[in-house]
Amino acid sequence: MVGARRPLIEVRRLHRYFGPTKAVYDMSFEVYAGEVFGYIGPNGAGKTTSMRILSTLDEPTYGDAFVDGFSVVDDPDRVRRRLGFMPDYFGTYQNMNVAEYLDFFARAYGLRSYQRRAAIDYAMEFTLLETLADKPINGLSKGMKQRLSLGRTMIHDPAVLILDEPAAGLDPRARIELREMIGRLADHNKTVLVSSHILTELAEMCHRVGIIEQGRLLAVGTVQEISSRTHTRSEVRLRVLSDPAVLINYLQARSDVSSVALRAGQVMLTHDGGPEEQATLLRELIEAGFPVVEFGSKTKSLEDVFMHVTEGRVQ
């Protein structure tokens, strides 16, 4: 991460209600220059809603957000000069080709003559679209559209990029290319806010992630931070040579163990505590005279972290 500690995106107590639906509820976080911030949450979590507010397409019910120090509510014009938004849809025009599409948006951002041509060339090179310049945009495939959409987003060289599910519908190769592009953007000291449903997809390219559900920000930090925080509970699998019923009774009496069950001769349990506490548990089991032949603890995958932090509620 880059050392400059000036938040390029600053969300302060953001709320957005649609009637009774609290699409965004009291959300606050900051993203710094050169940082890639991942935004993860299940369907309907409020990712798109908060991103639209940041991109000055919607206004908050309460609270405010700042891009490079400018309020998205009061100074949308200044925010727009510094921000590129890639929505989760591709806005298409009839009778237009790729180069004309980029040319139009470059003009709309006030780029003139050689500046504009340079910006278009750069965007096409960056998103590997050079060979498609004359292709009508209605005939583009999903992946090409996604790249063109990214090209449009970066055409005015914004300091902040907001990408709403850029990887949705891409093949594995295109995903890797996209990840590389986002990495390069961060290398150029751009601030990127990127959303996804899938934590693994973001884990490799994001410096930090925020997990949201039902409009609430549940956890913010690096993937390691979040997973170690949730690591304190783990699934433990045990096999003893003696009668498992006795073991189950013993375990159920312990305060650090919950949901004990016997499955196919193995005792499954949920244990509160990290690796050290597990070692203690094993030692105490042996000291209590149980002939333990198997002791396995399942390290949580990122999916588990996500499943753990979010609770799958829908509003």
Binding site: S55, T56, L57, D77, R80, R81, L83, F85, P87, Y89, G91, T92, Y93, F105, A108, Y109, G110, R152, H156
Partner: peptide
């Protein structure tokens, strides 16, 4: 076509 959103966030 939702291009209006794209247009309105330009300058």
């Amino acid at each position: 076509e939702q291009t209006y959103d794209l247009l309105s966030i330009t300058t």
